[in-house]
Each structure stands twice: as structure tokens, then as C-alpha cells.
């Protein structure tokens, strides 16, 4: 690791991935918490997969899904004139997928824990389902949802396996900090590995402190 580029890229990729994972994750969490429909368990299982799959396996599936020979990869290349894989966009997608289950599971638990009597009172007061969600459910669940978003950010920042499979390890282009730490160790640059590990560790501790703070618990 010879520059701050990996840290800057990691922060940028994680921030974008957190936005995507949060928007999709909170919506999915709401549907799973409130909806009663067929295939709910299937959706839940698919969303949870990135937690239980080995990161490299997740990366492999993403590579298969987004690669130059896949329908998505071909469409992307036709529209943008360049392949999707081995780009920063691919890194954002990998980090988003890795972060998604953390957002969904934490946000869903928070939404399910909202007192049903508060939501019923709002319906009786004439609020539509969307208004109940906006005025009651999301504000009351905000701390739990915030904790999920913070965990998602930490997961996106630390992603290695899926990112290296779909975005590669191209210095100054797609090399995020976790990959740079691995690269530094492989090349014997232990000082760089130490600095990178310390920075990632410090960010992880800060995020955990934020999560415990907004969840109302102490470590």
C-alpha cells in the first residue's frame, strides 16, 4: 500500500454501497415485517444468503451474474461501452450485496418491535398505510434502522472476498483497503499492512460504538 487511494476508494465504495443497501434493505425489511404473502420465507432466505455464503462463493455468483458473458454484463457493455466487472461500480455492487442482509435483519427486527397499538391508533386517526409507516413505524424504529445502516457500512467497508472476485485487485483503480492489506502482506510490506489494518480496525470500533450508542445499549 503506497498511497491513501485504497482508503479513499473504500470509504467511497462503502458510502455508496450503504446508500443502495439501505434504500433496498429498509424497503425489504418493511415488506418482510408487515407483509403476509407466499414466498416470504424464500425472499428472506435469499436476502440472508450473503451472510452464510463464503465471500468468495458470493463473489463467484456475482461474477457469473455480472460477467461479460452474462445477459446483465452484455447489456451493460452495450449501454456503457465497457465491461461491468473489474470496475469500481462492480466493487459497489459487491459491497452492497454483502451489506444488504445486515441492514435487512436489523431493520426488520426494529420494525417488528414497534408497538402495534401505536400503528393502530394512527390508522384510527385516519392515516393511510404509507402515512402510518412515515409518521409512526419508521420514526419509532429509527434507532434500530440506524444501527442496521451502520452495521451495513462496516460490512461494506470490510468486504474482501466478493469485491476481489468481481472488482479485482487493480492498484489505483479497484484496490480497496482490505485488498490492499492482503496485497501488502503478500509482498512483505508489513508496515503498510499494519497501517491499513489499524485504520480498518479503528473505523470498525467507531462504527460499533455508534451502533451500541444508537441502539441504547452499552458495550
Amino acid at each position: 500500500m503506497t498511497s491513501w487511494f485504497p482508503l479513499w476508494l473504500s470509504l467511497r465504495v462503502s458510502a455508496m454501497a450503504t446508500i443502495f443497501a439501505s434504500v433496498a434493505g429498509i424497503a425489504v425489511a418493511y415488506v418482510l415485517a408487515k407483509g403476509r404473502f407466499r414466498f416470504r420465507s424464500l425472499i428472506e432466505a435469499v436476502v440472508t444468503l450473503p451472510i452464510v455464503l463464503p465471500p468468495t462463493v458470493l463473489g463467484y455468483y456475482l461474477l457469473t451474474l455480472l460477467g461479460v458473458n452474462s445477459p446483465i454484463g452484455k447489456s451493460w457493455e452495450r449501454i456503457f461501452g465497457a465491461p461491468l466487472v473489474f470496475t469500481q461500480t462492480a466493487a459497489v455492487i459487491a459491497a452492497s450485496i454483502s451489506a444488504l442482509p445486515y441492514v435487512v435483519r436489523t431493520a426488520r427486527a426494529a420494525i417488528e418491535s414497534v408497538d402495534a397499538r401505536l400503528e393502530a391508533a394512527a390508522r384510527i386517526a385516519g392515516l393511510s398505510e404509507w402515512q402510518v409507516a412515515r409518521v409512526v413505524t419508521f420514526p419509532v424504529a429509527a434507532r434500530g434502522i440506524g444501527a442496521g445502516v451502520a452495521l451495513g457500512f462496516a460490512r461494506a467497508l470490510g468486504d474482501f472476498g466478493a469485491t476481489v472476485m468481481v472488482a479485482g485487485n487493480i492498484p489505483n483503480r479497484t484496490q480497496t483497503l482490505p485488498i490492499a492489506v492482503y496485497d501488502a502482506v503478500q509482498s512483505g510490506d508489513l508496515d503498510a499492512a499494519r497501517v491499513g489494518s489499524f485504520v480498518l480496525g479503528a473505523i470498525a470500533v467507531i462504527v460499533l460504538l455508534i451502533v451500541t450508542q444508537i441502539s441504547g445499549r452499552k458495550l
Partner: peptide, 17 residues
């Protein structure tokens, strides 16, 4: 739907936000 019944309700738990 509850929203369309135009009722008011007060419960044991005031259910204030």
C-alpha cells in the same frame, strides 16, 4: 378499512407518539 370508518378511539394505553 379502519382509516375509512371515521371513528375516534381512546384506549387504556394512550398510544401517543
Amino acid at each position: 378499512r379502519t382509516q375509512d370508518r371515521k371513528i375516534g378511539m381512546v384506549s387504556q394505553n394512550a398510544a401517543l407518539l
